[in-house]
Design a binder for these strands. Structure first.
Lengths: 255, 255
DNA sequence: CGAGATCTTGAACTAGATCAAACAACGTGG
DNA sequence: CCACGTTGTTTGATCTAGTTCAAGATCTCG
């Protein structure tokens, strides 16, 4: 390790604390020295243009990635050339774990807007993780969170009603914004309606209609990609299958 | 720790080589000594009755599990009490990773038939993994495979047509049977039609109809839970969105 | 400011859910 | 061994939510 002046370390900590480390390191009570070691291997602040790919299907697992800023989608391509959106990745969420199994990526990671990312070379990460138990724990936890997001995604897809999926999607997205320190009730969607549709297994028209419906019911306000959640509780209720239709002061019929 | 006679080690190896280790250890070129260490912590051959649960929602992460024989489903319960089937687990496939993120299980794991499982206490596993690089690698790979299965599942759910989902499901299940050394074209479904329906986000009647349709087209033969795949290539084709219907009697040409 | 991309809205059509009922497989106990 | 309920599966008929096709509105950005 190099001469770690306190100044230098402070800079590292700041940069990493807002970035991946928000989840990857800090909460585990990692020491300054440990953070230093991790930071040595991270290649920081690469700029990625909108639409550019972080990796493609079949690429060998070289690194895992974290957007410091800017969101990504991961997609698979079906035989007929259609994109399936497998996941969205907000800043601070790990990208690239899809290659863990076979050592090669099964998805493409596409920037939804201009972004800059940190690369964490995977082989070096595992070496360090083996030496630092707290980092190993934390790595597993982060992988677990990624798994949880996949499960959340599946729960959306299994929901029968399109409006439930959409409500669940908006609510979940809000919660993820909350976790990265942004407002959970007012945000700009990083992805298009079409991306959302391919993520939810719906037609894009259905997504659009779902949005306007929620707006009519005063649950959200939409202006293009700007979304404001006006009635979070109602949104959650809708997400969990409570049939909407009566928004006014009507009683609830159980039918 | 105990007197490890060569005889004993041989037994361990045999037991583990057919069990979890099929994926968890052997392929990584683990040495006899390493295998021995892993084996020390594994609690083996617990018997689980049909319908019994390995863990429940909210249970703290105590161990990961591998069925030595017998299949499991993992489910979540939606507010209205309905089961959502999150995954199926054939013998040799790891169960319990859903707790990695928060340290508590998000699913219930229910035995689809009588089974016996090995428990791998999680904290001990991570300790040993940190000491044995090849085991750490292998652990990550196994987690990756679990992730891949989730993605396969999502790809099924996103498919628009019910018949595509069903074809994809049967094909994927066959491949998983192949991986555990069983026939990929003739097997007994460990789960009910209802479980399949809840896994695919369909009504159980739709699953049933899908099966009979495939049978009418001579792609598969079904007798209750016994399935035989008669025309694997056609099954794959159907799974990937090639509209079926033509070829009512025989004669598949072209393409 | 304009042209392409993105989003909304309308109308018609259809795949699949839902309701309902018959049927098969499987113990279990008489 | 058979009647019996129980549970799982198939099949039929209807009805609705969401897809599809089409057109118009709005946004974005060179």
């Amino acid at each position: 390790m190099n001469d770690s002046a306190p100044l230098d370390l402070a800079r590292l900590r700041r940069s990493c604390s807002q970035c991946s480390l928000q989840q990857l390191c800090l909460p585990a009570g990692i020491t300054a020295h440990e953070l230093d070691r991790l930071d040595e291997i991270v290649r920081r602040r690469r700029t990625i243009e909108r639409g550019e790919r972080l990796f493609r299907i079949g690429d060998p697992l070289a690194a895992v990635y974290v957007a410091r800023d800017g969101a990504f989608k991961t997609v698979t391509i079906s035989e007929d050339g259609e994109e399936q959106v497998v996941g969205f990745h907000l800043p601070g969420e790990l990208i690239g774990l899809d290659a863990l199994g076979e050592g090669a990526h099964r998805c493409e990671a596409i920037a939804l807007g201009n972004a800059n990312v940190c690369d964490v070379p995977f082989d070096q990460l595992t070496v360090i993780a083996a030496q630092l138990p707290s980092l190993q724990q934390q790595l597993l936890r982060v992988i677990g969170h990624s798994l949880n997001r996949d499960h959340d995604h599946m729960e959306m897809l299994v929901r029968r009603q399109a409006n439930e999926r959409i409500a669940l999607f908006l609510h979940g997205l809000g919660e993820r914004f909350r976790q990265i320190g942004q407002s959970p009730v007012a945000f700009k969607l990083p992805m298009s309606r079409e991306d959302i549709a391919r993520y939810l297994g719906l037609a894009l028209e259905t997504v659009s209609r779902g949005f306007t419906r929620l707006q009519e019911d005063n649950v959200i306000a939409v202006h293009g990609r700007r979304v404001e959640i006006l009635d979070p509780e109602e949104l959650v209720r809708l997400a969990h299958g409570v049939d909407a239709d009566e928004a006014p002061a009507r009683a609830r019929r159980s039918r």
